Amino acid sequence: MHAVIMTGGKGERMRPYTHVLPKGLLPIDGIPLLDILVRQCQYYGFNRVTMTCGYLATMIQNYFENGSKWGLEIDYLTEDVPLGTAGSLRDVSCEEGSMIVMNCDVLTTLHFRDFYEQHINQKSMLTIASHAIEVPVEFGVLAVEGERVLQIVEKPTNHSLVSMGIYVVHQDALKYIPKEGKFDIPDLIHTLLDHKERVTHHHTDSFWIDIGKPDDYEKANQIFEQFKAQILPKESGHEY
């Protein structure tokens, strides 16, 4: 099975950390984020990982080399200009038919193989890993009809189903990516839906955190120990 990890961004929201390291090499409890994801891929049976690189690409390539240390094959696609999260997939060859695609800044206990197999079984063009979150509103929310107030709800909590930044993409979906210019995964999803292609989601209650800001990074380091055994199962053969 084939996994693609998108690690081409400059990580501007993670400054000052990313002045020195690409976001994918930021350590969680001493282990770089990308290292954690690669170990998970190997554990769940993926034998090939493609990393789409841009900012500080050489550091990532020097760290992982050909992937033999992790028991799988790692290759690289380097972007001279930002191509977006889907644009970077233009030149990916997926002989397996479908590939798991993920951002480099996710920390999760998602069972990658179950996610991949559900996508195959549902014959989807693209499957999104989804997670339920609660978003508190710090104001009184009004229900109105014209000028008339029907109800006020003080500081409600909204419940939403969000994308985890992890997908399984069928090879045929790549034909919808324009040959030039920046193109992101949401653009690809909108295009697939416009063309009536099958897009599904895989809901999970697994632990998940998107490390997009310094506060998220600090939180991930604080709680990693609690989920370490699930994120990095010892059965993978690695010592952590």
Rank of each mutant, 00 (worst) to 15 (best):
T204G: 04
I28A: 09
V92S: 11
P22Y: 02
S236G: 15
Q42S: 09
K175E: 14
N158I: 11
K219F: 12
N62R: 06
D29K: 04
E218Q: 13
A173V: 05
D35A: 06
L188W: 15
F139H: 15
E134N: 06
V101C: 07
G165N: 02
L107H: 06
G45F: 05
I189R: 00
S68K: 15
E235C: 00
V169P: 02
Y63Q: 02
V141G: 09
V199Y: 01
E65M: 14
D80V: 05
I74E: 04
H238P: 00
P186N: 12
F183Y: 15
I5D: 12
L72P: 07
V135T: 14
G84D: 06
I31S: 08
H201T: 06
I231D: 08
G45D: 03
P178W: 12
G67L: 03
D35L: 05
H111V: 10
V141R: 09
S130N: 07
T58A: 06
A173H: 03
G24T: 01
H203T: 08
K234P: 01
I74Y: 00
A220K: 01
T204F: 11
K155Y: 13
H190Y: 12
L192H: 04
G84K: 06
F227C: 08
A143N: 09
G71W: 14
N103E: 02
K10G: 04
Q230I: 04
H190I: 08
V20S: 14
S93I: 11
M6V: 12
E12D: 11
G54F: 07
S163H: 00
K69A: 13
D80R: 07
I128T: 05
V137C: 10
I31L: 10
T204D: 07
L83H: 01
M59I: 03
H238C: 03
A86M: 08
R15M: 06
E138V: 11
I223S: 02
K182M: 13
G71I: 10
L188V: 11
L126Q: 00
C94R: 04
D216F: 09
G165I: 04
M125S: 13
Y55R: 01
G11R: 02
H203C: 03
M102N: 01
I120Q: 15
V135L: 15
N66K: 12
I120E: 15
T127I: 06
L37F: 03
Y176N: 07
L161H: 04
S124K: 03
G146Q: 07
E239W: 12
I5N: 13
E138Q: 15
L33T: 08
R198M: 05
G24D: 07
L37Q: 12
D29V: 03
L34G: 15
V199D: 05
E12R: 09
A132I: 09
